[in-house]
Amino acid sequence: MEEKAIICKDLTKQFGDFVAVNKISFEVDSGEIFGFLGANGAGKTTAMRMLCGLSFPSSGEATVAGFNVFNQQEKIKRNIGYMSQKFSLYENLSILENIEFFGGIYGLSDRQLKEKGEELVNTLRLQKEAKKMVGELPLGWKQKLAFSVAIIHKPKIVFLDEPTGGVDPITRRQFWDLIYKAADDGITVFVTTHYMDEAEYCNRISIMVDGRIDALDTPTNLKKQFSAETMNDVFYELARGAKRSDN
């Protein structure tokens, strides 16, 4: 029954003459934590946006949760969660109101919302803050909350776009505990990051350079393949050859 969560074949996105994503192919297994690495401007976000149904690919094929990115975007949207690099909850809504809102637009019933809300507040130990405005929380908590809200509707896949930017190492560790817990619950995790220690936490990673995927394997194998000590060296080895960068 082990079906693939994401299948990508020659997926391409072109903006005029600029090929942002150049024929990338990969598969992600269900329940896997898949790291999607690449320097700034390598095309990660563009690729992710196509998979989330936010933009149409120029060519190639891809299915997400078994649905085609070209004509089944609505079905894809029902089955995925998304958390962007910008913190994205409403600051002038309380924790519970945010949960009610985001759960609500995914069509959760009042009873489900109430249960979920309580459960979430309990696991994050935010009982005292439940009625506080989100804007008053420290960034680390906000990020954890945003992640929990992104998977509130039990999606098959969750896309995380640099979810731990600007957070301290302890909170990042806690954040990854949440990711592992989600993966244990059967949610496939597709995550982009710039932190190489986080890359090591992934089951498999891919590294994008100039719109292509130049490497794809488990962290251990990659290190072997590039005869490198750390993931940092692997990444550096690959990204050094990049022709485009944002600086």
């Binding site: 029902r78 998304y82 994205s88 600051e91 985001f102 992104a150």
Partner: peptide, 13 residues
Amino acid sequence: ELGTMEILLVSPF
């Protein structure tokens, strides 16, 4: 600006 628009567009709404 806040990035919530993306979240909304990724949702089935």
